[in-house]
Amino acid sequence: MLGTNVTEEQAEAIREELGLNDPVLVRYGNWLKGIVKGDFGVSYQYDKPVAELVASRIPVSLGLVALALLFLLLISIPLGILIGSRLHSVWDTLLMGITQVFQCIPPFFMGILLTLIFGLWFRFFTPGQYCSYEDGIPEFLQCLIWPALAVAIPKVAMVVRFLRNAIAEELDKDYVRTAYAKGLSGMEVMCRHVLKNAMIPVLSVVGVVAADLVAGSLVIEQVFSLPGIGRLLISSISNRDYPVVAVLVVFIAAVVMMTNYVIEALYRAVDPRIRRGG
């Protein structure tokens, strides 16, 4: 904060001003008191209120996670149905092979691969370009497409494999034969009966994956230089900007807990057996 040419007195004055000389418990108490009153402290490295700093970056991370979740559902559900109902077909073997490889690619390497192939070779987008959400939502989302894909693809692979097994298991059951016997078409059986039941185990995986998407997004922001929560956290850790780190840690933990809660609620909504507590 003061640079390298600092006298001991100046350093001491700053420590006193920031309250760094107080005992740990007193500092923690003050911090908690601040949080309750809506005062999240002031960043050391930016000299700005932490609340303002974090708030300006939330939309970026939120957009990224939302888009990644959208891609996840849009890609993995059709693919899962496709191979789940055609076990041991060419498609199945092919997709199971591809997804096995893709689920082992860490999101940041996926991001680098996408940048290399689609950004630098095919020039579908400009690497490192970022459009602020203040300049228009469509442009903003367009800039987030590739980062979101990078986060989503490894998880798509995971969910597709899971959905395939869930559907295959449901298709073996008696009620499917009954449905066919009633004269329903394959499409109707799939949508009205099988999918409803197969979604229950899948939902629990999506819950875990949603938390993974949050984690992956924090990392991917670094790859695509997006000014979101993740980059703020990492630069704050590297620069020992503790007021920011503390608030972000609490914030991220809260987001993950909320995600879990929402999934739990969805779980109950989808499966009446859990709702009745049986």
Partner: peptide, 18 residues
């Protein structure tokens, strides 16, 4: 278990240092 491992590792590292 509710937290992804990268996320928790980030939290632990932010507390104990790099």
């Amino acid at each position: 278990l509710a937290f992804p491992s990268v996320l928790l590792a980030l939290l632990v590292i932010s507390i104990f240092g790099v």
